[in-house]
């Protein structure tokens, strides 16, 4: 079987998910050897922007250049995989999307003339193009990346976990950050796969892997308010990684209106 033609791309991002691939030191040469890596600007100096079997795309669309790049990648890729919380949910760059980018830009560069980019309110890839598969995480977990690549190489659709951080946290027998320690912990509404790393380090979950399917933000919000946190404290924590998530905003708004 011919090696699949693969492109690895970063839009506006911290490059952390591409770095997770490079951080697979033990597997890297095997992974790269199993793929026909056509484009990986961060990791190789000769790149061919051709028709692809698989495109892995990290980051958010934050300007017109990102949007055009993404549309071009989509048009020549059979499978497009969103890599990381930014690509899947919007991540940190989208955490204050209620403020217009023009306002941000003015605050930064003032009235000085700059040849700046045409800014777009940062949003996940699926807002602009169809996405075939999502690997969330800030950054993504090495095991999920390697496992997904292995599945694809075998012609299978990768299967990722769909349980909340709380489940993994309970299995690890950690002290509950929310119930026992009264911290704002986003474990109940956050996608597992990290083996509850933060609670395992005596730190509350900050939600970096993005929301679980059908997350009950309303219940999380109410519970934390009952514990004495203010609405803005809870919202501020919930917005860091997945502010564009419709369920989050809709559920919180609904409660606030009641």
């Amino acid at each position: 079987m011919a090696k699949p033609k693969v492109g690895i791309y970063g839009l506006t991002s911290c490059a952390g998910d591409q770095l997770v691939l490079v951080n697979c030191e033990d597997e890297l040469l095997d992974i790269v050897g199993a793929l026909d890596l056509k484009s990986f600007v961060m990791g190789q100096s000769i790149n061919d922007e051709c028709e692809l079997d698989i495109a892995l795309v990290e980051g958010v669309v934050a300007n017109q250049h990102d949007k055009e790049t993404l549309e071009d990648i989509r048009s020549r890729s059979a499978l497009l995989i969103a890599l990381g919380t930014c690509a899947v949910w919007g991540g940190v760059p989208a955490s204050k999307n209620e403020v217009s980018r023009a306002e941000f830009q003015k605050a930064v560069y003032g009235t000085e003339t700059t040849g700046h980019e045409e800014l777009i309110t940062p949003l996940p890839l699926s807002h602009f193009v169809p996405v075939d598969f999502r690997i969330s995480g800030c950054p993504i977990e090495k095991e999920e990346l390697v496992g997904s690549i292995a599945s694809l190489l075998h012609g299978d659709i990768p299967v990722l976990t769909n349980i909340p951080v709380c489940t993994e946290c309970k299995m690890a027998e950690n002290i509950c950050q929310m119930v026992d320690l009264n911290n704002i912990c986003l474990g109940p509404v956050t996608l597992a796969g990290c083996q509850a790393r933060c609670p395992g380090h005596n730190r509350p979950c900050v939600g970096c892997r993005g929301p679980i399917e059908e997350a009950n933000f309303a219940s999380e919000y109410t519970l934390l308010l009952e514990k004495g946190f203010t609405s803005s404290e809870v919202i501020n924590r919930m917005r860091i990684f997945a502010y564009p998530c419709e369920g989050l905003q809709a559920q919180v708004e609904k409660i606030e209106n009641e």
């Binding site: 506006t12 403020v99 941000f104 860091i240």
Partner: peptide, 25 residues
């Protein structure tokens, strides 16, 4: 030509104990 993300504006309003989670990104 990396897209602007405006981190200094993004951390505004956040608590002192959340800043390092945002800035490291």
């Amino acid at each position: 030509i990396e897209g602007s993300r405006f981190f200094e504006a993004l951390v505004k309003g956040h608590s002192y104990n959340e800043v390092h989670h945002i800035s490291c990104r």
